[in-house]
Design a protein around this nucleic acid. Sequence first.
DNA 1: CGGTGTTTACTTAGCA
DNA 2: TGCTAAGTAAACACCG
Length: 349
Amino acid sequence: MPRPGKSSYSDQKPPYSYISLTAMAIQHSAEKMLPLSDIYKFIMERFPYYREHTQRWQNSLRHNLSFNDCFIKIPRRPDQPGKGSFWALHPDCGDMFENGSFLRRRKRFKVLRADHTHLHAGSAKGAPGAVPGGHLHPHHHHHAAAHHHHHPQPPQPPPPQPPPPPHMVHYAAAAAAASTSGFKHPFAIENIIGRDYKGVLQAGGLPLASVMHHLGYPVPGQLGNVVSSVWPHVGVMDSVAAATAAAAAAGVPMGPEYGAFGVPVKALCHSASQSLPAVPVPIKPTPALPPVAALPAALAVPAAAQQPPAPSTVCPAAAASPAVSLMEPTAPSAAESKGGSLHSVLVHS
DNA sequence: CGGTGTTTACTTAGCA
DNA sequence: TGCTAAGTAAACACCG
């Protein structure tokens, strides 16, 4: 059946995990960061399925934000009213769904705690280690502690999330470069969202594209007013087929009614943040990447200790140049949040 | 208080 | 089938 009527998409659960949905929402935002409420909004706007049982899925979503190292919290600026912090994607989380499945990643993205170097008694929240090789140690009694609001000292501000959106340009550029070079690996979501899915398609035929397509989900019109509907025009042809197939595979009965999702594709990086870890050293994901070592971060710790000096923190470049994938001058100091000084590791098999 | 965050613990489900 | 990622439920701390 081509079209089961109409309830098709509305009541079907989208083939995306909360992680992918959240990442999409974040990527979709201009600043690449969103407050929780906006993430909810984004999801609800395009996935009717999530207009119900909000209590349930939102709790799950929140759990995911806190639990997964791929999401980082960025404090709100003083002048920005509102409740919680902004959420962004960890710069090194790379392509979490590169295998094409938005339901299950090959490996969970985890940041490695800086080897026990806690200088701060704060004890940070625990970021359990990550474990590249295998399991994390479940027994770390996390001590709890948590809630200390991570920034004990709010000095101020160089607002990372600022108002003016002009900076993204860099990101965009980087992204562009990346795509140009055909190298894409920073967060797949991005792909998902649009951009070179085309290449992707051909690259491996991935279901990825398919899903993405699917992503568009309902009513194109709806998205219309949202942002851009990027890729509807594009891969429609095979993507549809692929999507269908993928959906089928996924057990998701989707219909062609899914429209396009629209997300700009600009950047993949976000200004990561302050709370961010400093220097996430990607041990790295892509096989192609040489172990760069680098980490100039050592010096880059100016005031950054707490805040990313400006959004310009550059993005992980991973996208742009494979060779140099890591830069991130963010400060390694704060060992507070999930990333204190941890190295991020993408454990890919 | 209610929204936001964290963290446990357990169940469900994908993938190799 | 086993390992592990993902989903769910829930207790609990905080902050505005």
